[in-house]
């Protein structure tokens, strides 16, 4: 299925969870925060939160800033 991931349409496994998506992308969960359809998904819900087709996912991290 397709989801919008950080602004770009990407193919991901059907029904993948947030935890599964991070593994799929090779991203360390402790370093990022995830938002699905404009709501934060807290780390304790990564395993349960399954993505649906067309979901908008943002994966963010801290960068330098003032």
């Amino acid at each position: 299925m397709q989801v919008r991931l950080n602004g770009e349409m990407r193919e991901v496994p059907d029904g993948v969870t947030v935890a599964g998506l991070l593994v799929h992308l090779g991203v360390k969960a402790q370093r990022v925060a995830v938002e699905v359809n404009e709501s934060v998904v807290t780390k304790d819900r990564y395993e349960k939160h399954a993505l649906g087709p067309g979901d908008s996912v943002e994966i963010v991290a801290f960068v330098g800033g003032g």
Binding site: N6, A33, E58
Partner: peptide
């Protein structure tokens, strides 16, 4: 110290 929040470069 201030930090910014940005999309992770995948």
């Amino acid at each position: 110290v201030t930090v910014a929040v940005r999309r992770l470069d995948l």
